[in-house]
Design a protein around this nucleic acid. Structure first.
Lengths: 163, 163
DNA sequence: TTGGTTGCAAACAATTTGCATCTAA
DNA sequence: TTAGATGCAAATTGTTTGCAACCAA
């Protein structure tokens, strides 16, 4: 009976168990070792719903395995992004954000609320197509694209300056 | 017919003379002083057609005024961007690029050729509108938006991996 | 005269790296 | 057994900042 409940999303591995297996398989395929630190970091990343920083990941990973060091977090992050289990997101601040990629999305934009600093991952229809049409103007073909919008809550009265 | 001499472009100040005046006026309006260093930095930026980094700007500014320091370049850059005489462009590298803004453009995307590292400023029709339509999905209104495309030369044969 | 500016060097902050020590396979 | 992985601390890198000397207004 324990059916649908959290399986609502149609995408990729949703439960930790199978996701961890995916990660282990990836490590093996790349000739990398399965260490307790890598697993802790993976798990910490996977359990995070929102965007997170390397520092936050370090804290969370340490709650799982006290021996995890900052260096290992920074060395593991590229592995996670290359395995596509985690996406790296650069919104122009001086540190990067990461996001567990529960299912892959390309036509997606980041909307950053400058008042709360919250980052929204929003569906951007035809973004890939749009980017291609632009790159073609200079004889290039897209490898990746990103659309980022700095925004603020809509104000009925004074839509411009105010603070 | 010999109309507006060099006013071929429909946009903003094209010649150094008037652009410098614009800058001086801006400084005055903001209660900032007109110093030789600021003028040198402005001129170095204005004469650069391509994107440039802070370090490159320092070199060029020093060719005009030997006394210009790195600190002053970094302190002047925000003034130039706030005056909208220069645009700041962050393509995700660990340093920023700048570009003299000969006329303001909003519907423009950056296409980065990953093989040459060259940055192209390309017309992106309806970009602002597109960004707005996305931000509205979360009840936000755009302050600014940027679309960046990492791209490579189109290869007839092997459009994917190769090196 | 005087408060904004500057150059210099030290400070920062996120990320990377050298190295001796571990440990997965 | 042993090449890959780790923790620690030092190093890097682009940018910022404190401060005494300077200088535009």
């Amino acid at each position: 009976m324990n059916l649908p409940w959290q399986a609502a999303q149609a995408n990729t591995p949703v439960d930790l168990e199978s996701a961890r297996e995916t990660f282990k398989t990836y490590l093996g395929k790349e000739g990398l070792r399965v260490t307790s630190q890598r697993l802790a970091i993976f798990e910490a990343a996977f359990n995070q719903k929102e965007h997170f920083t390397a520092e936050e990941l370090l804290d969370r990973a340490r709650e799982i395995d006290r021996s995890v060091s900052r260096a290992t977090v920074y060395r593991t992050l590229p592995i996670l992004t290359e395995s596509e289990l985690v996406r790296e997101i650069d919104v122009g601040k001086d540190y990067k954000f990461y996001l567990a990629s529960h299912g892959k999305q390309i036509d997606q934009a980041q909307v950053v609320d400058v008042e709360s600093d919250k980052i929204y991952e929003i569906d951007a229809p035809f973004l890939e197509w749009y980017a291609r049409s632009i790159a073609e103007k200079v004889g290039l073909e897209p490898i990746s694209q990103r659309l980022q919008v700095q925004a603020r809550p809509i104000r009925k009265n004074n839509p411009t300056e105010s603070d």
